[in-house]
Write a protein that binds this DNA or RNA. Structure first.
Lengths: 138, 138
DNA sequence: GTTCTTGCAAAATATTTGCAAGACG
DNA sequence: CGTCTTGCAAATATTTTGCAAGAAC
């Protein structure tokens, strides 16, 4: 299928060898459209090993295919880096965490707020996590 | 000392019985002036038990004396709720995480950026974590 | 064959709970 | 006494690594 080739290309573009598990993990990210944890993936991909998925996440993260999201749930989640997500020198990540269904979504990119830092502090990345109730739960 | 009474009052004001461990934990928060983890406290308060400190943190959090900080380090940290930190319906937390020394500081309150949420999403809290290099490491 | 990936097991790290003894009123 | 707090031990959850077998090139 063309789809598979597309996913393969995504990986190749980031210098990640498109192995079976990696394609499965990438596909999950593309399908769910929200931030998911290692455990989530474990349960979605019952035939792949936890540690393999773990290392896949680290590889993806390193190659900027995904980024980690600390949404305060205590479990590290990961989300796809879309075009609207610039995983570059000055990262900016916006996420919404629903305190009802516990889902975490990426929000479309918006301009970063101007925040005053104390003297001599230099900024590299900004993560904004908004919490509340999502449309489904409202 | 007057100081102790002051700390006792802080606890009493939040309906928390000022026990020995609680006073020690509160004092640590007031002294360090940054976000600290359970493990940090364990090491600072060698004579207090881990689980007691843990429950103290939960109690403090519930009574809005402290709030948790997900700074992406993988370890949950906690920081004092100062006057500048309104742990109320519309929470806003600003933190700075130094990727060099791994310290996490509370930033003084600033107005939260206006962020456009998708339809039917309602906002209750906003957490902004900025990452970079702090003054000490710069 | 050499390098990279995978699965299994297990280690390492973090968080949380059960329970009985003790403190406090 | 009765309630709340504490320490100890241990369970649970989460993240991470070692290693040998297998796949890819």
């Amino acid at each position: 299928m063309l789809n598979i080739n597309q996913e393969e290309n995504i990986l190749k573009n980031r210098k990640v060898k498109p192995t079976a598990v990696r394609l499965l993990v990438l596909r999950q990210f593309m399908e769910v459209n929200k931030a998911i944890s290692l455990k989530d993936l474990e349960q979605l991909l019952v035939h792949s090993d936890k540690s393999t998925i773990f290392r896949t996440l680290k590889t993806f993260e390193q190659q900027k295919l995904i980024h980690s999201v600390a949404d305060g749930s205590g479990i590290t989640k990961y989300a796809l880096c879309l075009e609207s997500c610039e995983c570059e020198p000055k990262d900016q990540h916006f996420h919404f965490h629903c305190i009802s269904c516990e889902m975490t979504f990426c929000l479309p990119k918006q301009s970063i707020p101007i925040v005053q830092l104390p003297p001599k502090f230099t900024l590299q990345q900004a993560n904004l996590v908004l919490k509340g109730i999502c449309a489904n739960c409202n």
